[in-house]
Design a binder for these strands. Structure first.
Lengths: 247, 247
DNA sequence: GCTTCGGCTTGATCCACGTCAACCGGGAAT
DNA sequence: ATTCCCGGTTGACGTGGATCAAGCCGAAGC
């Protein structure tokens, strides 16, 4: 497939902003581990950037698949729906993470991806990604690792849903968010939740009231300070202690 | 990497049995969609076949990863353990399915794979699979689809664990087994469970007593006939009707 | 043959979380 | 400023599945 990306021009700031090689998320995202030269070849893939407004769908169940998406900024949830309307949130995604891997299997998306705040994504045409990863060893390897990491993450969620009690689940959830915010240079003790109690509940297999009560309980016990979507972790070890203790 | 596989010899039945191109699971497994010529190149990868006795580990958490495994015959479970000993079964795998994808991410396995009956697997050295899939387009594509399918499957399990009631979970589980047995040419109405009630329970996020009661209930209602590990499905539609009905 | 043991079933009771309902508070619309 | 509405909190109560406990059955060992 020919390279359809225009060559960089000296003074174009806009071009600089649309490429992987200068993206400040490159160490978290697909470009991880690539050489400078390889990075520039990856730049050619990222033909489209798109803004997704809060509440809008990036893709829906059944949409035909032809690209995966890297989150440049913002916050998403993915979910699957049962015929009777029950929703299961399968994940929350933030900057540098990839969306759309579910679509490779059938060439149609099998879940919905919805922006929880105004967001910006890079579309990566999948056929071109495959073809480039046939040439760039490290890209191929890294892409495989990303897919595998998603599988491992899913196993963690199964563990959470299958064996943990409500407060354990919420503690695990908060610690996971904290750790991912840290990796992005944000505070690991203080953050705004982008999702509602109901969405957290759906992800954790709980009802929103149970989530709310668990938040209140954590606050009573001094582990966190919480006011609506604003969370401050006061005692990380306290939260960690809630994990891995048998019922 | 050199080809270490001996050349086929006219009369060698054992050689014929060790390659993908004549494997009767090839349409379910990695070779799916490959041409005859491509198949023969894949044959060269499968250097080792291994027998795993019932109860033995194919790999354990922490083992270093260098191959994925195709199940040639038999039945496995994969699980993850919490420090306090709680177990979550993350899946049951049968002939033609791949094991070990979890290890790609960190180059160490993150779950255990245990044979539930005497089994036989083909080890596929991962570095060589990657290198071959850089050359064979269709192999690359198919491997990506397999990984993606695993992610989609995991989403289904999350849905099950997050939103379904006990009897729905068991019905979904039985229908899933039935469908996979069908794809392998076995009866879709009658089969032996290779796993215990406790393992089913762990997979479904239930206790073994609850699983047992659900089996009994299905039997009372005429959906199935069950005696220990032997299950006969009498009314597929009855089971399907248990799904997708709100609490 | 008898015994043992692991897996399964079934009953009685308990409890974590769901359900239902009231209320609160902040942001948006008018 | 008033109203509306959505998301969140909290309380009272109900229940599905967990827990505890007893007994059953079939395979394996002696």
């Amino acid at each position: 497939m020919p390279n359809t990306q225009p060559l960089n021009q000296d003074l174009s700031l806009t071009v600089i902003k649309t490429v992987c090689s200068t993206c400040n998320l490159r160490e978290l995202c697909l470009p991880f581990g690539l050489s400078l030269e390889e990075l520039e070849r990856l730049d050619d893939l990222i033909s489209t950037r798109r803004r997704i407004k809060r509440g809008d769908y990036l893709y829906r169940v059944g949409d035909s698949f032809d690209a995966i998406y890297a989150i440049r900024s913002g916050f998403f949830k993915t979910d699957v729906l049962l015929e009777d309307g029950r929703e299961q949130v399968t994940g929350f995604q933030m900057g540098g993470e990839l969306l759309g891997l579910d679509g490779i299997s059938t060439e149609h998306h099998t879940c919905n991806a919805i922006a929880l705040e105004d967001s910006e994504i890079c579309a990566i045409p999948f056929a071109r990604l495959e073809s480039l990863s046939r040439e760039i060893h490290t890209l191929q390897r890294h892409f495989h690792k990303v897919m595998s990491r998603e599988i491992v993450r899913d196993h963690g969620v199964m563990m959470l849903l299958g064996t943990m009690r409500a407060e354990e689940r919420l503690a695990a959830f908060l610690l996971n968010l904290s750790q991912r915010f840290t990796a992005r240079g944000f505070s690991h003790t203080e953050f705004y939740l982008r999702m509602t109690r109901e969405e957290i509940g759906s992800y954790l297999g709980l009802k929103l009231e149970t989530v709310s009560r668990a938040f209140s309980r954590f606050q009573e016990e001094g582990h966190i300070a919480v006011q609506q979507k604003h969370v401050r972790i006061l005692n990380v070890d306290g939260l960690k202690a809630l994990l891995n203790q048998r019922a």
